[in-house]
Design a protein around this nucleic acid. Structure first.
Lengths: 183, 183
DNA sequence: CGCTAGTTTCACAAATTTGTGAAGTTAAGG
DNA sequence: CCTTAACTTCACAAATTTGTGAAACTAGCG
């Protein structure tokens, strides 16, 4: 049984999206995925994430992802497993259908930076242990203690920074809605 | 001709360091290197960096690194090339000897975060281009514009944060030197 | 309760990455 | 300038990672 709910498009089209240059979109997806991969993210996870990012709905089914990126369902599954683990994507069991949809986590960047924060916390802990091993009075011990202090500092700062971002966004939205009322 | 300048130690010893439990130090080096590798850093670069971090002088020769990590000179060379590129280590041509020494960059974490900042700048640029491709009025275009805005925000915040760290350190050092005078 | 669309798991082949030995290069010291 | 210590580069083997097809599993639907 063929899909008949969505309007037909040329093969390879991203159906359901606003009219757009799909080739250019694909180039953008690959470019951003490459950026993320360079920063240490798994390649497929990066591509799937980028594909979600450019979807109008912010959510796609496994089949849609596989089609758009030309990858196997197995690869999608692996990428989604990773993205779920790091809370960048949520799985939605779509009622009335057998398909799952994968949705971008609401505040992806907030989540991602929070995750970074946890990593910095681990580093700090590693450093504190290291300082004990090296002896707090030795040059190496002092250097490592300072590093631990820096990591501690970052952990205090990051949440504050995210809070400022939220405040700024709230302010901007309020301003926009005032402008809309006036217009 | 054997090395006779430094005092002899048992094989595998880290000569020139304060007395310490070298096995424990090595475990710490490997643990921190693993932390860094998990965050996306090349394995050998991470190990070399960690080895420098635990040295009292903050600087080691290629041979010392090779000995302590049990790796080939070639591996050291590759790791150093990377660490130099990202400004975490500086090469010192030691006058009166043929050996280079590799020294931890003065403000490693400052440098490293600045580097991150540059990466975020690239991401923002990618996003701005993407927004054009997707159309600024579409849902995907709006999402991507917001992402770009977030990256822009981070770029503004990071330098300020580093500045606060410097101020805090300066303050702390001043307090310590006052305490030393009093004692 | 079976059928089957949709997803995950698994074993494997391909591609990539990593670290090495050895040859090549550079420059200090005679 | 020649010798040689120190480092780098190169080609390759080993190890790891990545993505696939196919089988196994799960749960709607009849």
């Amino acid at each position: 049984m063929r899909e008949t709910i969505e309007p037909e498009g040329a093969p390879g089209d991203a159906r359901g999206e606003a009219a757009r240059d799909e080739a250019a979109v694909s180039r953008f997806v690959e470019r951003f995925a490459a950026d993320l991969a360079e920063a240490g993210m798994q390649r497929m996870a990066a591509r799937v994430f980028a594909a979600l990012l450019v979807s109008d709905s912010g959510a796609l089914t496994s089949a849609e992802i596989a089609e758009r990126l030309r990858i196997s369902p197995a690869a999608v599954s692996g990428a989604i497993r990773y993205l779920s683990q790091v809370d960048m994507v949520v799985r939605e069991r779509e009622p009335g259908s057998r398909r799952d949809r994968y949705r971008l986590y609401n505040e992806v960047w907030y989540e991602t930076l929070t995750r970074r924060d946890q990593m910095v916390a681990r580093w700090e802990s590693t450093m504190r242990d290291g300082a004990k091993v090296l002896g707090p009075g030795t040059p190496a011990g002092l250097r490592i203690t300072e590093t631990a202090d820096f990591f501690e500092f970052v952990q205090r700062e990051l949440p504050k920074m995210l809070e400022r971002w939220r405040a700024q966004q709230a302010e901007r939205r309020a301003a926009e809605s005032r402008a809309a009322e006036a217009g």
